[in-house]
Design a protein around this nucleic acid. Sequence first.
DNA 1: CTCATAGACCGCCAAT
DNA 2: AGATTGGCGGTCTATG
Length: 319
Amino acid sequence: MNKSIEVIILIYPNLCLFEFACALEVFAQKRPEFEQTHYRTRVLNLGANFNLDSLSLEVKVLTNLSVLNNADLIVIPGWQGTTIRPDAKLVKQLNSAYKKGARIASICSGAFLLGYSGLLNGRKATTHWRYYNQAKILFPEAEFDETVLYTDDKRILSSAGSAAGLDMCLHIVRSDYGHSVANSYARRLVIPPFRDGGQAQFIQNIVPESSGNSFAKLTQTIEKNLHKPFSIETMAEIVHMSERHFQRRFKEHFSTTPNKWLTKLRLQKVCEFLETTNFRLKTIADACGFGSEESLRRHFRIHMKVSPMEYRATFTGEA
DNA sequence: CTCATAGACCGCCAAT
DNA sequence: AGATTGGCGGTCTATG
């Protein structure tokens, strides 16, 4: 692909600057390390009332809806409010841009603009977990999934809470220009090139483990001894339950199976080691309780979509 | 990549 | 009655 991709980022009153900035960062940042320009990005202002000139952006700001006609990609960084309906002209323009082959990608509450435009009907979508229930009621024909960071269904994309928008934008770069270009973008941002998994796991990790929880002892024991193997039998003994009962209770509390949870925990530790040390992989595998280097590699690739060494490279500062 | 094997997972059902 | 528990065993998954 040699021609650069035409991107339009929408802005409006009550814009969330962070999400707007995420979109700018990925699609409007100058990238002298590449000979080719990947994205030609412009901003379409639908009434945002702050002075964009003061931001000294290097992107062109337009106000005429007709620019959507030539867009390859339209980014919606949040929407004005979940109950605010877009006006008919905008809806019409978005739909006609979509019909012409444009992709439309929303961040966070931006999914509501997609929804009000009828573009989510019959498609997978997601939004910030705070808006999830409201979105499901307003747009019953969409398949909302609150367990993913972003969705991509027939050229309509949506992403969860603010930072997941970055993951989605990188996903777009990856599908346009491949892994290595996307990794380079990620390196510049100093974020992992690929985050998998869902909002659920973030929510879960934020909630502090109550000490009254009978699993508290288990998780503490495991975290302290991550280098050791933990079979179902061992774990069930720690919490004084039969194996069957343990599996049921565990799934109830963690909404995942013991082994999946364990692997995720081990992988988190692996990431920490990769980010902060230059230990050989075998050493890390031993320290994190993977029986072999090969086993670590297999899990790592499934969850992170890159190899351990590629992941490490994003943290060693080369740009 | 493939393979054999061990272990995890989970529906089912009887016991509590 | 209704919910909870734990064992059985078929199937799926991870490992080296």
